[in-house]
Amino acid sequence: MEITGLLSYGVFFATLAGIYAVLALGLNVQWGHTGLFNIGVAAFFAIGAYASAIFTTAPSDMHMGGFGMPFLIGIVAAMVCSGVIALLVGLITLNLRSDYLAIATIGIAEIIRLFLKNEGWLTNGVRGIPGIPKPLSGVIEGADELLFLGVVLAAMLVVYLALERGYRSPWGRVLRAVRENEDATRAAGKNILSFRLQGFVLGSMIMGLGGALYAHFTTFISPEAFDPMFATFLVWVMLIAGGSGNNRGAILGAFVIWAVWSGTEILTGMLPETMVTQAGALRVLLIGVLLQVILLLRPQGILPEKAPEVRGGMDGDTEKARGAGRGPSE
């Protein structure tokens, strides 16, 4: 491959990895920090993508809108829509034990998928929404993709910095307390449901942001793009591989697993012609096995969580107790 081809593949790779990193950061707030089990990542991703698409495309008879708004308004719309849906789901399920939340989020993901597919007036159904504008297009001749990579990385950085700040704040400490020991946190006078809701909604809004970035990157979205289980699963593997609870781990995991995933494509590309239709299944199989290996051998991930020291507290001990055996207390 010539150098320009390699370069443009690198930009393509980094853009998608960056979008996945945003999703993984969103999941990290929910699972890593607050201990909430969300298997509906794809739903919030899709809501964000569709919301931004509807707000920013030119007016069309095929779907609701478009309202021809600027990119930033699209982003805000994506985050608000994801947040509102998350709030509704959270109010119903966050008081229940984690398994119920998991089952409920999978139901939401399925319903959102059915809705996007069947409600043509809103989403143009299976035909999808074309012509989603790419921000900064044409500002510098021939550098559209590179500029958009900049947008994605900037968004990722902003989310990362905000989450790091939140994580180290008293607020972040309460989220971790909710995760570690619900009863003790309640005894300390904290409203458990309120903090869970905050973590869940914030994480879902970040996933919505990821969805919006994705829509503006591909400029065309259809329900097919959101194979619910697969998108969700990949983000989970990224977070667990990188180190749940650790924001830097979430980003690292996204890039590493995206590299592995892209690598399996090269691998299955070498298969004989007759096996081509099976390549997708083989790739999913490899990622599934990878997850199991990580869970068994290094459950804390590449970069394990390292909670900031608490003044006068027994730093160190709490982290050791954590690792894999973590999850919302029951």
Partner: peptide, 20 residues
Amino acid sequence: TAPVILLISSFGVALILRSL
């Protein structure tokens, strides 16, 4: 470990079985 880790694992098992 926590039961919820088993849940994640079973999620992976689901995809492994399906692709097999």
